[in-house]
């Protein structure tokens, strides 16, 4: 098959076991490996690139087995977290590196094409130390693509970028995938990058896949507690916390909708009413999306959002809570659907 394919890939190093991992990254698509530090994302990417030996399993690129090939013969455009730009070479000579190594007769012209593509023409004679973070990212991208790779492997590509540069680079990456029709396997610990770029999303935890699916399946399908917490969801209530909430009558309602891992109560599903109630205000903050009020409701601590100001509400006040049951989601205890 075309594209990148991993089957039953396993490896062990320094007490850490990764896998077995099965992955398919078709041409023109981006699979994003997401997970906390130590989940095994970078280990999997480096094994795919050929810098770590796999213990079991197969890695194929366009049907060609790669497990025994050295990194220089695998055909990947690999970009490490630091980008790995050569500090002693100008932008132009960085981009030209692969073409020089392969002895391409038209190295300068081909490098020029990618330099222009990434709008690096005015920076061509500068050294990496003279560039901004965003410019360095573009150079890394141009250099990887100038080698005409059959797939891109990218480790934390948008690290240390401001929002504007990040958005711009996300756009460029998407265009490149579309134009070049090559697969991209990308590692990040940042859910925002992952959700913005991924055709398919793979969440890793301690060397195992915890979620696999399209980003939109996260909204439609059921989530496990780990994935939901990692993706930044708030108000993850366990069944025990729901049972001990401040209103026994409503606890039954909530429990009836909960999964084995409890219930996700999105902040926008919760509203408060000042006056006598079963919840106590713990804090009130203004955020970019409106007023945020954290309340203690029996054994449950939840955050609610409101576009309107909370009036004279103070920490310690009693409030009544209402929850829109149509917006709550059940949580699985472990693996999610789609895996």
């Amino acid at each position: 098959m075309s594209g990148l394919s991993l089957r039953g890939v396993e490896l062990a190093r320094a007490g850490f076991h990764l896998g077995p991992i099965d992955l398919d990254v078709p041409p023109g698509t981006a699979t994003v490996l997401l997970g906390p530090s130590g989940a095994g994302k970078t280990t999997l990417l480096r094994a795919t690139a050929g810098f770590l030996a796999v213990r079991r399993g197969t890695i194929e690129l366009d049907g060609r087995p790669l497990e025994t090939e050295p990194p220089e013969r695998r055909g990947f455009g690999f970009v490490p977290p630091s980008l790995g730009l050569f500090p002693h070479r100008t932008v132009e000579r960085n981009v030209r590196f692969a073409l020089e190594i392969s002895g391409a007769p038209d190295a300068a012209a081909r490098a020029r094409r990618w330099i222009e593509h990434f709008a690096l023409g005015s920076l061509a004679r500068r050294y990496p130390s003279e560039l901004s973070s965003g410019e360095r990212q573009r150079v890394a991208m141009a250099r990887a693509l100038a080698a005409e790779p059959k797939a891109l492997l990218w480790d934390e590509p948008l690290n240390a970028l401001d929002v504007e540069s990040r958005e711009a680079l996300l756009g460029v990456l998407t265009d490149v995938l579309e134009e070049e029709r090559i697969p991209l396997l990308l590692v990040t610990h940042d859910p925002t990058t992952a959700l913005a770029l991924a055709t398919r999303l793979v969440v890793l935890e301690r060397g195992r896949i915890r979620f696999r699916g399209r980003p939109e399946e996260l909204a439609a399908g059921r989530l496990d507690r780990f994935t939901a917490r990692f993706l930044g969801y708030e108000n993850l209530a366990s069944r025990e916390e729901l049972a001990g909430c401040g209103d026994p009558a409503r606890a039954a309602d909530l429990l009836s909708r909960a999964g084995p891992g409890g219930l996700l109560l999105p902040p926008e599903a919760i509203s408060w009413a000042p006056g006598a109630g079963s919840a106590t205000v713990r804090s009130i903050r203004w955020t970019a999306s409106g007023w945020s009020v954290t309340v203690q409701w029996g054994s449950l601590t939840v955050r609610a959002e409101s576009g309107s100001p909370p009036g004279r509400l103070r920490a310690g006040d009693r409030v009544g809570l209402s929850i829109d049951l149509e917006k709550v989601k059940p949580l699985d205890a472990s693996e999610g659907v789609g895996a």
Partner: peptide
């Protein structure tokens, strides 16, 4: 010398010897 520059050179087609000569050695010169 950032070891990731050597990794990048390898993935760009350089053998270990070429990566040493063109990246590590030159950057350390």
């Amino acid at each position: 010398v950032d070891p990731e520059t050597v990794d990048a050179a390898r993935s760009l087609g350089a053998t270990p010897g070429e990566a040493f000569a063109t990246v590590t050695l030159v950057a350390s010169a």
